[in-house]
Design a protein around this nucleic acid. Structure first.
Lengths: 203, 203, 203, 203
DNA sequence: GATGAATGAGGATTCATTCAT
DNA sequence: TATGAATGAATCCTCATTCAT
């Protein structure tokens, strides 16, 4: 994962510096995923990155700062992964299917996002809130597009967007993070969620 | 909140001891809600409880132990709140409505459950996993009852249970925890989620 | 040296605690005298005091806090030493003689006061200023008593008080701190300063 | 302030180098005056000087080295200021008046001398001691000239020189550094100190 | 049971100094 | 000469836990 994430960070001025900064960010993702923010340590991060302890502070002001940079990084990475799966010509429900499937695939490959984004609730509540508000907003826009296009019924709004986000997040937790080989795959899970959205539970 | 929660704790032998233990548990709930597990401290807990620092260890083996006791306590409290709202004669979808409404009401009154249960992901992953697995299992049993009773379609299973749980949790986060006066109330939110389950998004 | 010095410190509640606090204060005086505030370390203080590192923070909030307590302690100790040397029946110039002699004796026995009070200029400028202002005020009161009593000329005020204080401080530095066996003793130095005050330099 | 001050420093070979060295010295004076030696930093000095961090070590061997250069610089600057105020034809007491007045004026313009010279007590005790020994020696020479010339009484020596230096230093602290608009000016303060030296306190 | 002093491992952060470019 | 990234020793402070009273 290697996107923007320059918020709250010192800007390297050389290519070498840019590389070191990236190594630190990747090492921090691994360290926080393994040990969490509070039990992870800066010295473990620099050890993983293969640089000296002090080097950390050339690039980040504090442990909090690198965490925030990481959350921003991952939040955007998820967004991008889902965004790329969506094609403009898809029917609204197919868009939801594609978004969930892309998310499940992404989460399966980057299991650290759950631990890191969830821990933001404690370490940096603003990032946490912003992450979910932004995500909900994007879902809501899709709902509105579906209404405009005539596929969805009227009256769908924020509550439905949060409901869909919650479904997706928990399906990701259950199947992408905690899933085992005997569980249904990404496609099947996405399909069942999609069925729920299309026709509900009723017979 | 004051239920069982004797797991991993020393049993007081006197009424006075019982009272002290309860004060510590309530103080811990407040402290962890305000500051989280890692930034909360035992000394702050004993200060809130009005007892000396050393007294803590008469009742709990460690910081982890009181946290686990707390998670068990709250997990059961949520379960009970939802359980009480459900009457045997309700139609399956009405059961879902009632369960969500009870949960939203409960969460609005005990905003600390989110911070505490969520932080279990880091402090005591087993509790965390167990909490959601148990919850999902209960939803799944309701789905099966609905199928048996003929209201729900065939094929609903674990995936749908997790999807519903995710909806409920995120609606709780958005409306019970982060909600403001201008947001739709508990009844409306529950109704909209119920509509989604009944007929999906489609027109 | 062991006087008040409870400013900015946590109050021990037991006799044992009182003893530990005193050991820390004495150890800090020695450590800061040897190494200065910035190069002295908390761990060296606790080692000198024979207690564990963490014990320090049971009694003082920070390195700064113990330093401030120390400055207050010593400032008062100097005041007391000079005060005790002065008898109400002494003639004004004899009072100055006695005060300087007591100060030189005290400084010779507690060479650390110079390093500690001087370093307050950097560590805690308020203490530093207050120490000298208070001292100057006491000298000024003596000048006024001498004027009232008819021994001193009119018009002596703050400038003269600071001049006398400066004399005393520098004579202490030269003879009490940096003096050697071949230098004039306390009595002679005090007498020469007293002569200067009595009749100036003129023949 | 910009005098000799090449002790312990690398000699620049170009005019540009000479300029950089001077910028560093001035920046260090400002930084140490504001933050003291220990809380001042090399990186702040280079930032103030507008050069890169590494450049510092082209001109000075260490933080200590630039501090020593600074103390030597200022020590000499004070000496020069006082020296220039003294004319050979002045009567001895007028010389003392002129020296103090020049010192007070100089200190008022360069308030950093106190912080920097005083901190030498901790950073470089030898410079500190040497500064005052040299100053006392010069005063002592003036005393001897006054005795030879018949204005001063016999027997004045080192003790009196240190006493006079102490007076001057503390009057500088009180009036040049800590003084306010409502305080007596340089001329009055110098005059009162001179009166003290001429006739003492007695009526 | 209750108290609070004592313990010490642990970790974030700073910054003088070095060195490759 | 000038640059700024890299280094790592050093140190303050926190806090869960223990234990004597």
């Amino acid at each position: 994962m290697a996107h923007r994430a320059q918020a709250n960070a010192k800007h390297p001025r050389t290519a070498r510096g840019e590389r070191t900064r990236r190594k630190l960010l990747d090492a921090a993702a691994a360290e926080f995923a393994d040990n969490g923010f509070y039990e992870g340590s800066i010295s473990a991060i620099t050890r993983r990155a293969g640089v000296a302890l002090g080097t950390f502070y050339t690039y980040f002001d504090s442990k909090d700062a690198i965490f925030r940079a990481l959350v921003a990084d991952m939040s955007e990475a998820v967004r991008i992964a889902a965004g790329e799966a969506i094609k403009p010509e898809m029917a609204p429900l197919n868009v939801e299917y594609a978004a969930l499937e892309a998310f499940l695939t992404f989460a399966g490959k980057h299991k650290e996002i759950y631990r890191i984004i969830d821990e933001a609730e404690f370490v940096d509540p603003d990032s946490y809130r912003e992450h979910y508000q932004t995500t909900a907003k994007r879902i809501r826009e899709r709902l509105e597009a579906g209404i405009g296009e005539g596929s969805y019924r009227e009256g769908l709004g924020e509550a439905e967007a949060w409901a869909i986000m919650g479904m997706n997040v928990f399906l990701g937790l259950r199947y992408a993070i905690w899933g085992s080989a005997s569980d249904p795959g990404t496609a099947e899970v996405s399909q069942r969620a999609n069925d729920l959205l299309r026709r509900g539970l009723s017979r």
